[in-house]
């Protein structure tokens, strides 16, 4: 019984330490899956040209232009006009669901004032509607 108590106490201790590190340790920089355009602009100094990170936001309408090996478009923090935005130069094929207005997560780095990416993931939302119904499009 004593052996079990020791095991249980050390188990609880390990779990408590892990939870403490997870919630109060400064792991957040590594836990964030992507930066929004607003955060990317604010933290521009921390990410010199060539340092890779993921940038996530919405593809702004009427900004998508085809280039020789990919696309150029603007990614904004929100869908409303005037929200902070970053011009993106994407090399490679767009994801299948890529379209104006949809959420994307891009992997790449700053190059001057532009974000150059080579990997694109599409982030669709939790709303499901048949095609002919009204309402807001993503």
């Amino acid at each position: 019984m004593k052996r079990y108590r020791l095991l249980a106490f050390s188990g609880v201790g390990v779990v408590a330490i892990l939870a403490g590190v997870l919630f109060f340790g400064n792991l957040n920089d590594n836990l964030v899956y992507y930066l929004t355009p607003q955060e990317a602009l604010d933290q521009r100094a921390d990410f010199p040209d060539g340092r890779r990170f993921q940038l996530g936001g919405f593809v702004e309408k009427d900004t998508v232009v085809r280039t020789q090996d990919g696309l150029r478009f603007v990614v904004a923090s929100g869908t409303e006009p005037g929200s902070p935005s970053v011009t993106v130069e994407h090399h490679g094929a767009p994801a299948q669901l890529f379209q104006a207005g949809i959420g994307v997560v891009l992997e790449g780095s700053w190059q001057g004032g532009e974000f150059v990416s080579d990997t694109m993931k599409v982030k669709h939302d939790e709303n499901y509607q048949p095609p002919d119904s009204g309402g807001d499009t993503p």
Binding site: L31, Y33, V105, K123, H124, D125, E126, N127, Y128
Partner: peptide, 17 residues
């Protein structure tokens, strides 16, 4: 956490979207 996976549709407060 910020995720690529979409948030819950049904098991959340309010009308399922």
């Amino acid at each position: 956490w910020r995720a690529l996976h979409q948030p819950p549709t049904v098991l959340k407060p309010g009308d399922p979207s």
